[in-house]
Computed example of a mutant assay.
Amino acid sequence: MKRTFLITGASKGIGRALSERLARDGHNVVGLARSSGDTTFPGTLVSVDLTDREGTQAVLSDLDARFEFDGVVNNVGFVQLSPLGSIDLDGLDRAMRDNLAPAVQTVQTLLPGMRKRGWGRIVNLSSLVVLGVAQRSTYAAAKAAMISLTRTWALEL
Results as ranks from 00 to 15, higher is better:
N28A: 03
S19F: 05
L110H: 06
E156M: 00
I7E: 01
V133L: 15
A154T: 05
L157C: 12
F67V: 02
E54D: 15
L128A: 13
V107C: 09
L110C: 11
L81D: 14
V59Y: 05
M96G: 03
L110E: 04
F78Y: 14
D25Y: 06
E20G: 03
T109V: 11
K116P: 02
G26P: 04
G37N: 04
L92K: 02
D90H: 08
A141V: 06
I7Y: 02
D88M: 03
T44A: 12
L149R: 13
G31M: 06
Q105Y: 09
N28Q: 15
E54K: 13
A141S: 12
L6W: 03
V107I: 15
D38H: 04
L63H: 05
M114P: 02
G113H: 08
A154D: 09
L128K: 06
L100G: 08
A154K: 06
G55K: 10
L111T: 08
T4F: 08
I7L: 05
P42T: 10
G9Y: 01
T44S: 13
R117H: 09
A17L: 12
G71Y: 01
A140G: 14
A154L: 08
G120K: 10
A10C: 02
R34W: 08
P42H: 03
L81G: 06
T150G: 09
W153F: 08
S36Y: 04
T106G: 03
A23T: 10
K116A: 10
F5Y: 08
S82V: 15
Y139S: 02
G132K: 14
A144G: 15
S137C: 14
R34I: 11
R34P: 01
R24N: 07
V46Y: 09
V104K: 02
K2E: 15
T39D: 10
L111A: 12
M1T: 13
L128M: 13
S11A: 13
V130P: 11
A142F: 09
R151G: 10
A140M: 13
R66K: 15
G85R: 04
G132H: 13
A10R: 01
P83S: 09
S86C: 10
Q57A: 11
V73E: 01
S148M: 15
L110M: 14
S126L: 06
A144H: 07
R97Y: 07
L81Y: 09
F67Q: 02
R53M: 12
V30T: 07
A145W: 07
A154Y: 04
T150Q: 14
S126C: 10
L81Q: 12
R121M: 07
Y139Q: 01
V130Y: 03
T138K: 09
R34G: 12
L45M: 09
G9E: 02
K116C: 01
V130S: 06
I87R: 08
K2S: 14
R24V: 00
L45S: 06
E156L: 00
A33Q: 00
L84N: 07
T152P: 12
